[in-house]
Design a protein around this nucleic acid. Structure first.
Lengths: 113, 113
DNA sequence: CAGAATCCCGCAGGATACTG
DNA sequence: CAGTATCCTGCGGGATTCTG
């Protein structure tokens, strides 16, 4: 259940769409390192789940807008909390990692090298 | 960044540990369908990141307790929000899915079968 | 009980090329 | 611009066996 809701790309897309509707390539640029295919897939799933609404404008060149539905917005709240936490604490987390690794390399050296 | 924090098993482990410290196999039973290996891996990463603390009691049979650190508890808040949303809205989400699929199968049939 | 080690498979996910 | 189709790879993650 947290699987569905909390997968790698979906959360990032939701965070970006929270601010405003976006077009495809616009979205692509906003979401860090997502490939074109994964964005397509992710959006399709989000649409299927009723979290995102797809609006096609038959101009030339074609233009497609993606926006959060009300349902999507309700999800964006807790997701945003998570994102905020991540932003605020990710450096702490990496520091912890470094200290942990430093300790363990020391121990490994005792046995290995 | 949401990657690290929001992966499949970590979030579930954090949710479970939020209530109380747990022993290995206890944890294994609480976290839905996790394998022994994935629990081991997940816990190691969480410990490395300073989110979970591992306490070994050298009894026989050995006993190991896992508990959230204060850092881990701070993360557990937003994660909990997400879990609550999921619990409350997952059926809606699946309903959306069914309706979406119903529509598209109809369209596909028009072209395919 | 709490892991480590090994084997193995599927699919998430990237790169590239083509289309309307 | 907004996709679809195809090919290919890595690794997420399960099952099983062994140890202290």
């Amino acid at each position: 259940m947290l699987n569905r809701v909390g997968d790698k790309w979906s959360m990032q897309v939701i965070v970006v769409l929270r601010d405003q509707p976006r077009r495809f390539n616009d979205l692509r640029r906003q979401v860090n390192g997502i490939s074109q295919q994964m964005l397509t897939r992710t959006l399709k799933v989000l649409e299927r789940d009723g979290l995102v609404e797809r609006t096609v404008r038959t101009t030339s060149p074609p233009q497609v807008d993606y926006a959060l539905t009300p349902f999507g917005h309700s999800l964006s709240e807790p997701v945003r909390e998570l994102a905020i936490w991540a932003l605020a604490n990710l450096d702490t987390l990496y520091d912890n990692r470094l200290r942990y690794d430093a300790n363990n390399e020391a121990n490994d050296d005792t046995n290995q090298a």
